[in-house]
C-alpha cells in the first residue's frame, strides 16, 4: 500500500486537561504504534453488605492471645 502524508503548519494555543487516567496518552509529537488497554471492574458482587469477616477474625485472634 502506498500512502503520502503532508504535514503542514501545526500551531495550538492552549490545551486544558482535567485528567489523564487508566492507560491514556497525551502526545505532542509523532508515534509509530500505540497500544493502550484498560480494564475496570465494579460488578454487583463487588458491593458487599454485611459484617466485616476479617475484623471478626482479628477479634478472635485477640481472644486467643
Amino acid at each position: 500500500m502506498n500512502m503520502t502524508v503532508v504535514n503542514h503548519h501545526l500551531s495550538v494555543g492552549h490545551i486544558a486537561i482535567g485528567g489523564v487516567a487508566s492507560a491514556s496518552l497525551v502526545l505532542i509529537g509523532d508515534s509509530e504504534t500505540i497500544q493502550l488497554a484498560s480494564a475496570f471492574d465494579t460488578p454487583p458482587e463487588s458491593l458487599i453488605i454485611g459484617p466485616f469477616p476479617q475484623k471478626q477474625n482479628n477479634k478472635k485472634n485477640e481472644e486467643k492471645r
Binding site: L27, Q35, L36, A39, D41, T42, S46, L47
Partner: peptide, 14 residues
C-alpha cells in the same frame, strides 16, 4: 516516540 504500550487494571469494592 516509537512504541507505547500501557495496561491498567482497576477493581472497585464497596
Amino acid at each position: 516516540t516509537k512504541n507505547v504500550e500501557a495496561e491498567s487494571r482497576v477493581k472497585h469494592i464497596r
